[in-house]
Design a binder for these strands. Structure first.
Lengths: 164, 164
DNA sequence: CCATAATACTTTGACGCCAAACCAATGGGG
DNA sequence: CCCCATTGGTTTGGCGTCAAAGTATTATGG
């Protein structure tokens, strides 16, 4: 990593070296954290993608959302949503239901098993990952803020739910 | 994102809220940056994974490395290396060669086309991504340092090449 | 010196992500 | 009122990642 940065500078790309190093760094940290999360979730039959959907539904008022809404909130492609919901449904954690008035849209409704599993997954993640990042609380907050700056600079806008 | 953090606090998981927010944030930033990079590289027939291999070979003394070494340096699974090299070889940017003394190992050797494409890709990335992260240089460095701290806390050690 | 362990790569299979093409249903504008 | 654009999901196909099993080859210990 430091070596790559050196190579950049030595080739006259010094103005881009820090950006390159940052991008590489983010890729690596992502890889590390995702591995930690997925390892912690594996015993519950979940992945991070599935877990995110479960929690999104858990925190929704009625425990059900249109697939499209899920994609928007989690910022993933519709095809990915279809895929994840397929698997959650196969595991009985979610159920597809028709939308009462719009026959185009499909609702994903979380089941009792889905809620149970999501709750247990949260306990595991809180204990094994989220509280074990390895940075002092203040450093952790600063890091989050910097990443938020980067997201905003990239045009990543918050999609607030109706009523917030 | 801020909403998810609120949900954590409201459920008595306040001690894990910042860690959760950080993990989510890293996932999102990774998604944003990878999309930027792959979009910039697409016209050249490259992806970030392929680009990394190309640059690793470019900066190696003789332009050739054992596949296993590539996996170690880039921190990816051997199967991923096989996969990426397959594609680079199909595009004529790399060539598999037998190791002179150890018949088990395969060397990946970069071709002239590989070097050309890697160089052009670097120009594009430097101009369109690495210098356009959207943070002040100082903020960018701080962010990199924080991520480095996190990596080190996670036991991510540098694998220096022989002679550094 | 040979049987066994370790190393290097490939294959297969599962998962995630995205783009493009494809249906089904809704909703305007003529 | 009907045609057509838009919206919502699914399908297909391509790419990347990893784990586990399989094949070769090298290295080692009895």
């Amino acid at each position: 990593m430091a070596e790559a940065r050196r190579n950049w500078v030595n080739n006259g790309w010094g103005d881009a070296a820090d950006g390159m190093a940052l991008v590489t760094s983010v890729m690596r940290v992502h890889q590390i954290l995702l591995a930690r999360v997925d390892e912690a979730l594996a015993p519950l039959g979940l992945t991070f993608a599935r877990y995110e959907v479960l929690m999104l539904l858990t925190f929704s008022r009625v425990g059900r959302l249109p697939l499209g809404k899920i994609g928007q909130r989690l910022q993933v492609h519709p095809a990915s949503v279809t895929n994840v919901i397929d698997r959650l449904e196969a595991d009985g954690m979610v159920q597809r239901r028709p939308h009462p008035s719009d026959m185009r849209t499909t609702l994903a409704a979380i089941t009792a098993k889905g809620r149970r599993t999501g709750l247990r997954a949260t306990d595991v993640l809180n204990g094994e990952v989220f509280t074990q990042v390895g940075l002092k609380p203040s450093a952790l907050e600063d890091l989050f803020d910097s990443l938020a700056d980067l997201r905003h600079a990239a045009g990543d806008f918050e999609i607030l739910p109706p009523g917030l």
